[in-house]
Lab assay of single mutants.
Amino acid sequence: NQASVVANQLIPINTALTLVMMRSEVVTPVGIPADDIPRLVSMQVNRAVPLGTTLMPDMVKGYP
Rank of each mutant, 00 (worst) to 15 (best):
R47F: 08
V30D: 15
I32A: 02
I32Y: 02
G62C: 14
N1F: 15
T53V: 14
V30P: 14
M43S: 06
V45G: 00
R23E: 03
G52K: 04
S42P: 00
T15W: 07
I11C: 03
L19V: 06
M59P: 01
T18R: 10
Y63E: 04
V49R: 02
D35I: 10
A48H: 13
T54M: 03
M43A: 09
T28D: 15
L19C: 15
V6D: 00
P64I: 15
M59N: 04
T53C: 07
M56T: 13
S4C: 04
Y63H: 06
N8R: 14
P29R: 04
S42L: 15
M22A: 01
P38S: 11
S4R: 02
R47D: 05
V27P: 01
M43N: 04
G62Q: 06
P12F: 07
E25N: 08
M21K: 03
V26S: 12
T18Q: 07
L51H: 09
V41H: 05
L17W: 02
L51V: 09
P33S: 13
A34R: 05
N46M: 15
A16Q: 08
I13R: 07
I13D: 09
N8Q: 10
G31C: 03
G62F: 06
N46V: 13
R23L: 04
V5F: 02
R39G: 06
A34E: 08
T18S: 10
R23P: 02
T15Q: 09
M43H: 12
L19W: 14
M21I: 03
D36S: 10
P57A: 11
D36K: 10
V49K: 01
Y63D: 05
N14S: 08
L10G: 09
L19I: 09
V27M: 07
D58W: 14
K61R: 10
V27R: 09
D36R: 11
S42D: 11
N14Q: 08
Q44S: 13
V26M: 07
I37H: 02
M43E: 04
S24Q: 13
V6E: 01
G31E: 00
R39Y: 11
Y63T: 04
N14M: 14
D35C: 14
T18Y: 03
I11A: 01
P33D: 11
A3L: 11
M59C: 05
V26I: 14
P12V: 05
S24D: 08
V30N: 14
V6Y: 02
D36C: 13
I13H: 09
R23M: 04
P50D: 09
T54G: 02
V6L: 10
P57M: 07
Q2V: 13
N1I: 15
G52W: 04
V45H: 01
P38Q: 12
M56S: 12
R23A: 05
L40F: 02
R47S: 07
N14K: 06
Q9E: 10
P33N: 14
T18V: 07
I32L: 06
Y63A: 04
Q2G: 15
N8M: 09
N8D: 11
V20Y: 12
M59R: 03
G62Y: 06
N1L: 15
P12H: 10
P29Y: 04
K61T: 12
G31Y: 02
P64L: 15
V26L: 14
T53E: 08
I37G: 04
V27H: 03
G31M: 02
V26W: 12
P64Y: 06
M59W: 08
V26K: 06
V6C: 04
L40V: 05
M21L: 06
T18N: 04
S24P: 07
L55P: 01
V26N: 12
G62H: 15
P33M: 08
E25D: 15
N1Y: 15
N1H: 08
V27C: 06
V26R: 04
V60W: 02
R23G: 04
I32S: 00
N14W: 11
I11G: 00
E25L: 08
A16F: 13
P50N: 10
V41F: 08
L17D: 00
R39F: 07
M43R: 08
R23Y: 04
M56K: 09
P38R: 08
T54Q: 03
A16W: 14
Q44W: 14
S24C: 06
T54Y: 02
V6H: 02
N46C: 14
T15S: 09
L19T: 06
M21Y: 07
L55C: 02
L55V: 07
P38G: 12
T54A: 07
L17Y: 02
D36N: 11
S24M: 11
D35S: 13
M56I: 08
N46L: 15
V26P: 07
T15P: 01
Q9T: 11
L51C: 06
V30E: 14
R39K: 15
V45I: 08
V49Y: 02
P33H: 09
M22C: 03
K61L: 13
V6K: 03
N1D: 15
V6R: 03
Y63S: 05
T15E: 07
A34F: 08
A48T: 08
P57K: 08
A7N: 00
M22I: 09
D36F: 12
N8P: 02
E25I: 06
N46S: 14
A48S: 10
V45D: 00
T18M: 11
I32P: 00
V60I: 10
L55M: 11
I37Y: 03
R47Y: 09
A7M: 05
L19K: 06
N14D: 09
A16E: 05
D35P: 10
L17I: 09
Q9V: 07
Q44A: 15
N46A: 13
A3R: 06
V60A: 01
D58R: 09
T28F: 10
A7T: 12
I11T: 00
Q2R: 05
A3H: 09
Q2C: 15
L51I: 14
V5L: 03
T53P: 00
S4V: 02
V41P: 02
A7V: 10
V20K: 14
P50F: 13
S24G: 11
I13W: 13
I11D: 00
N46W: 12
A34N: 06
R47K: 15
R47M: 10
N8Y: 04
L10V: 09
T54L: 05
V5R: 01
T18D: 04
A3F: 12
L40R: 01
M22V: 09
A34V: 08
I32M: 03
I13F: 12
E25A: 12
Q9A: 12
V41L: 15
G52D: 10
L55F: 10
S42E: 06
L51W: 14
A7I: 05
I11K: 01
P57C: 10
N14A: 08
V5W: 03
T53F: 14
Q2P: 15
D58L: 11
M22K: 00
T15Y: 10
V49N: 02
I13K: 09
P33W: 06
G31T: 01
P57N: 07
Q9W: 08
N1W: 12
V45C: 05
K61Y: 10
P33F: 14
V49L: 09
P57E: 08
V27T: 09
I13Q: 09
M21E: 00
V60E: 01
A3I: 08
D36I: 08
I37C: 04
V49A: 04
G52R: 04
T18E: 05
I11Y: 01
L19S: 05
P12Y: 07
M56W: 05
N46Q: 12
P50Q: 12
I37P: 01
Q44T: 15
V26E: 15
M22G: 00
T53K: 12
N46I: 15
V30F: 13
E25S: 09
T28A: 11
A16M: 12
P57S: 14
N14Y: 14
L40I: 10
N46P: 02
P38D: 10
L19G: 04
P57V: 10
T15N: 04
T53Q: 10
L10T: 12
T18G: 04
P64T: 15
T53Y: 14
I32F: 03
V45N: 01
A3V: 06
A48E: 11
S24Y: 09
T54S: 04
S4F: 03
V5N: 00
I32Q: 01
V60Y: 02
V27D: 02
A7P: 02
D35N: 07
G31N: 01
V49D: 02
R47I: 08
L19D: 04
V5P: 00
S24T: 13
M43Q: 07
G62R: 08
Q44G: 04
V6Q: 03
V5A: 13
L10R: 09
R47V: 12
N8E: 06
L55Y: 01
V6W: 02
Q9N: 08
A48N: 10
G52F: 06
L51M: 14
M43W: 13
T28P: 01
R47A: 08
P29L: 06
P64K: 15
V5Y: 02
Q2E: 15
L55S: 00
V6P: 01
T15C: 06
T15K: 06
E25R: 08
V30Q: 13
V60T: 01
P50M: 12
P50W: 10
G62I: 05
G62P: 05
A48G: 07
E25T: 10
I11R: 00
T28I: 07
K61P: 09
